[in-house]
Design a protein around this nucleic acid. Structure first.
Lengths: 231, 231
DNA sequence: CCAACTTGTAACCAAATAGTTATATCATGC
DNA sequence: GCATGATATAACTATTTGGTTACAAGTTGG
């Protein structure tokens, strides 16, 4: 989410600056949206890097080039900030998933598309994986508080169900395959490989993050997923 | 590891107490092995529950029913204690893996055995999964310092290679299957399901940890693994 | 243009935290 | 049987931490 958030923030900040300058041509020495977004982005990095307990509020304020007063002003306390980070990160995922439109693809192509989409998404958002690991350490304590995240992946599961049914009708996928199991399988293969890459490469002495290795694992996910649902 | 460590500790403690009482029949008010093991067990729980940054040294000392002086006496500092926990936890895994003897099993049975073993092992050792997640958050910083953990899974990979070769020779497995990819597949399916169960069940509103669901997922791992390597 | 409100800074505080010291007690080799 | 080192306790300290307060300065509606 970091890159995207920064992009949006800067765009908004520039727009605000332009408007203000057109009106009175003063130096922009305050900019609430920018400060808010800068804190959120800094917090995302800090929480992803150190976990909830390891994250330092002072460090977040410093990284956002503001101070703690603003942080507490916008987000209440450390937990509120953490929850805001979680929700913003999930929102990014949800937005990205909307890009998927598998309805017109042939079943096997659709499954390939879905698996590679998930894999590339994990690759592009390492902070999402880290936050997920941290949140699970805390038994999803904070995520459960959020009303916004409840019906999160329904779009994805709907699209997946459709693909599976069409594959079944065409006689190439087994009948009554559970879409959630299929999704968990795809997510598991991508998540584990990336989130555990450091301990895995320490143990196996293998460069898991070389570009070739990453592409190969993406194809591996596709192959395993298809093999597991074909008749 | 917790249960096993506690068991060993208590056995040793009892043996020591017996010996001491036979010799002079004094109350046992000091017992280095027990203290050492109690600290290690308490630290395992604390680090697994809160991560490195979230773990509290005072809490560990209190949980071990000793005090910080002893903790620093035996383990140097917080990082030394964390490293000791990591090494002890990996040692438990390594010991368990030695129970595996797949050499005489038919290939498909061997694969099933290996997958279920890994799954049951993860189920029995949730603290291992949490510590792994924490360690990866820190880019395996501490694990890399340990010389002891380098050639960790070699036994497992050797056994797996043998099973794959025999399956290939029998014409039921595809040729030149990469054993590490197969192991990663098995581990990924188990690890992700368990370590992310809290966020997953929040999102999907499904009880992932019901006994039936757990058994079903174990069979799912077996089925997916076999489907991915069969000719 | 000014009163009310928002955004910002920096100094401050109480509690928590990792790590230490002083000191006492147990065990044991000589 | 006692000198010595290992094991234990609890009080202590310096620093860090999350969170607050006093106050300054920018912004805006009337």
């Amino acid at each position: 989410m970091a890159a995207r958030a920064r992009q949006q923030t800067e765009n908004k900040a520039e727009a605000d600056a332009d408007k203000t300058e057109r009106m009175r041509s003063t130096k922009v020495s305050r900019n609430p949206q920018r400060t808010h977004a800068a804190i959120l982005e800094a917090a995302t990095e800090e929480f992803a890097a150190h976990g909830f307990g390891g994250a330092r509020v002072d460090a977040i304020a410093a990284r956002a080039q503001t101070n703690k007063r603003m942080l507490y002003h916008y987000f209440g306390d450390k937990e509120g900030l953490y929850l805001a980070v979680l929700e913003a990160t999930y929102a990014t995922i949800r937005d990205a998933e909307k890009q998927l439109d598998l309805a017109r693809r042939r079943p096997e192509e659709g499954m390939r598309e879905l698996a590679l989409f998930t894999w590339r998404h994990f690759l592009a958002h390492p902070e999402f994986l880290s936050l997920l690991a941290t949140e699970n350490l805390h038994h999803a304590h904070y995520l459960q508080r959020s009303e916004k995240v409840s019906v999160m992946h329904s779009h994805l599961i709907d699209e997946l169900s459709d693909v599976l049914h069409r594959g079944e009708a065409a006689g190439i996928f087994r009948p009554a395959v559970d879409p959630i199991s299929v999704y968990l399988t795809i997510a598991a293969l991508g998540f584990f490989y990336l989130s555990n890459r450091h301990t895995l490469s320490t143990i196996f002495a293998r460069k898991l993050t070389a570009p070739d290795a990453l592409n190969a694992w993406g194809e591996h996910i596709v192959a395993v997923t298809l093999a597991s649902i074909r008749v």
